[in-house]
């Protein structure tokens, strides 16, 4: 294909402009996170104010929020991925009555907006005494992640299992051994993608922790950030530092393991 020098130059220009539009706001927040907290601190003349992060961690209580986020994310990822592997295994490799029905049942969960079921769920969990606990925040997200996870693992097991399973079956292996010793080790890339996506969604989730912990005792990092914005109005340095701390874990994972994120978010979720 012949393309003129002019067009190539124009393309680089367009690439640059769009990259700037995306990076500009992120650069702004990073700059403010490292800027002085007040004019008097600014007169000290230091360029980078790393103490903002320590202050946000303590004064903004982001240390505590991040710990809550890690706890919730760990519970959601471990539970939902394990359970999804089991269910995806059944739906993807076994033939039984109702398999198609169950598949569509899980598909519903991928599409349903949280707003649709969160209202009754809140009142039910409140009755069970689960609101304002880590479980109240984690369980609805486990349910949502299972819908996607089962769908995702089913698709993987269906495409990849045939020959491997036949060989294992001839060896007389039971279904459990086939799953954990033959299929799962080979499924590592698919499982990694699932773990990353569930982590991303749980880490960034806002509505569920907002509703499920009305007294704020189980406040995840994004929630802590939203409330900090409302309460702390002196300057933007600590707010920006908090925002960076909320975004950083996911951004680092994304930069390092980009392939997984793209594969999951472009093909996986699109399946519905």
């Amino acid at each position: 294909m012949k393309v003129s020098r002019l067009e190539i130059t124009a393309n680089y220009l367009i690439l640059g402009v769009f990259a700037l539009i995306v990076l500009g706001p992120l650069g702004l927040i990073l700059t403010r996170a490292l800027g002085p907290q007040s004019a008097s601190v600014g007169r000290e003349g230091r360029l980078l104010h790393w103490e903002n992060f320590a202050d946000a961690w303590e004064i903004g209580r982001f240390g505590q929020y991040l710990l809550t986020s890690v706890t919730v994310a760990l519970i959601v990822v471990v539970t939902s991925v394990t359970v999804s592997i089991l269910a995806g295994y059944a739906l993807g490799t076994m033939r039984f009555k109702g398999a198609t029905f169950f598949f569509y049942l899980f598909l519903v969960g991928i599409m349903v907006p949280t707003e649709a079921f969160i209202v009754p769920l809140y009142f039910d969990l409140q009755m069970l005494g689960l609101t304002n606990t880590v479980w109240g925040v984690a369980l609805p997200q486990i349910a949502m992640s299972i819908a996607f996870g089962t769908y995702w693992m089913r698709a993987y097991f269906r495409s990849a299992s045939g020959a491997m399973m036949d060989a294992a079956r001839l060896d007389g292996a039971g279904t459990m051994r086939i799953l954990w010793q033959v299929l799962v080790p080979n499924a590592r890339p698919a499982i990694t993608t699932l773990v990353l996506l569930v982590f991303l969604w749980t880490w960034n989730e806002f509505l569920i922790p907002l509703v499920m912990s009305p007294n704020g005792s189980v406040r995840t990092a994004p929630l802590g950030l939203a409330f900090f914005q409302g309460q702390y109005t002196q300057g933007t340095a600590l707010l920006a530092a908090g925002a960076v701390m909320v975004a950083l874990p996911v951004v680092v994972l994304y930069v390092v393991l980009q392939r997984h994120f793209l594969r999951g978010m472009l093909t996986g979720v699109s399946a519905h």
Binding site: P25, I29, L200, A221, P222, L225, A226, T236, A240, V251
Partner: peptide, 13 residues
């Protein structure tokens, strides 16, 4: 991949 809250806080500024 960035939390919507972070995006919102950024754009508010």
């Amino acid at each position: 991949v960035i939390a919507m809250v972070v995006v919102a806080v950024t754009w508010r500024q």
